[in-house]
Design a protein around this nucleic acid. Sequence first.
DNA 1: TTCATAGTACTGGACAGTCCAGTTCTCGCT
DNA 2: AGCGAGAACTGGACTGTCCAGTACTATGAA
Lengths: 206, 206
Amino acid sequence: MSENEPTRSARKHQAILDAATGVFLAKGFAGTNMDDIAKRAAVSKQTVYKHFADKEKLFAEIVLGTTDRVDGMVDLVADVPAEADTLEENLHALARQFLAALTGAEVFQLRRLVIANADTFPELGATWYEQGFERVLGTLADTFRRLTEKGVLHADEPLLAAHHFAGLLLWIPVNRAMFHGSPQHTEAELDHYATAGVRAFLAAYR
Amino acid sequence: MSENEPTRSARKHQAILDAATGVFLAKGFAGTNMDDIAKRAAVSKQTVYKHFADKEKLFAEIVLGTTDRVDGMVDLVADVPAEADTLEENLHALARQFLAALTGAEVFQLRRLVIANADTFPELGATWYEQGFERVLGTLADTFRRLTEKGVLHADEPLLAAHHFAGLLLWIPVNRAMFHGSPQHTEAELDHYATAGVRAFLAAYR
DNA sequence: TTCATAGTACTGGACAGTCCAGTTCTCGCT
DNA sequence: AGCGAGAACTGGACTGTCCAGTACTATGAA
């Protein structure tokens, strides 16, 4: 037998998760009904309830299941070289990757989804934010601390500096995406945000 | 007759608006039902429907009705004195008032409400953002342009500078409030955000 | 009187979650 | 390989509940 052929149960489980993710992202928690999910997963409703106790559990599992996707970004911000003469272009590269990763439509939809239901699921919102964005910023703060120790940067409060970096970079596109349906950022705009944000950041912290 | 004694109808209208505002803010659009609103307004359900065609119209009217509250903030950002030697403290004062105005719990709740329903009411989200925050930032950009012309500041792109100012200042508290239920900012924290944000901004743009 | 309103019952539809009868898969055992 | 039992799955009907919006009668204000 092949070493990892998923069992039927595992396949169904995954199909339900995939379908539910799509529907929740598109229509929100309240706007989604379980029959839709079952139909999209090509699965009977009974099976959905066999795998997930109820709608809320399914929702929570999906949202929290996305937090491990930020691992890549954590690696990204941890790997900024500490050389003074290439600092600007290194930060610019980081900024571009940051923007590229976050402006993927799915990330914004998920962000909206979590914010929208922060009342109903308070812990979910807090956890998602902590496991996600704050982890990245914490790592970025470590990087800034390292750069500061090497004398390349001057960040007395590295975590605050990391937030400033993020704020300079993300304030515009994030707000735009939160209030309008689709992202609508051209590559040129993103590049401009990155350039201007990095320039302002370096003026403040170099 | 007295010049402005509201008619009974006008009183009911206002009572419905007030009640609906409270319920929508507390429980969101989907979580709110019309019976609750009627009860809270001490009005019959029929009367609610006499004044507002349906739930969506009521919701839209409430959300859009709040945009004129930003007029005060527009005045605020238009009135920054253009003297170089007091620039830092002037901006700091502006930053504090900005933070104070935005971290009022109601503003954040409203923001969450709009974001949460940006899918269902796409135009509403766009309009609210444009009439609200973008108007303030546009005015702030004008101020920065004026300061730049006087040589007090160097902002080649005043609107971008205004966004940077906002991002430096608001990124932390806004995100915290979006994902957690309650704001939870101490005065000391807000002051620290203002000081650090203004310092970074001036380093970049003076 | 006349109009807005209160109070309340009602309609129609949506939807979470359950139940059940019959089918298909899985896997250990021979 | 072939068998058989138990687990998982299907499809659809069903329950109970919630809720937007309507209908209707009675009441109080102008």
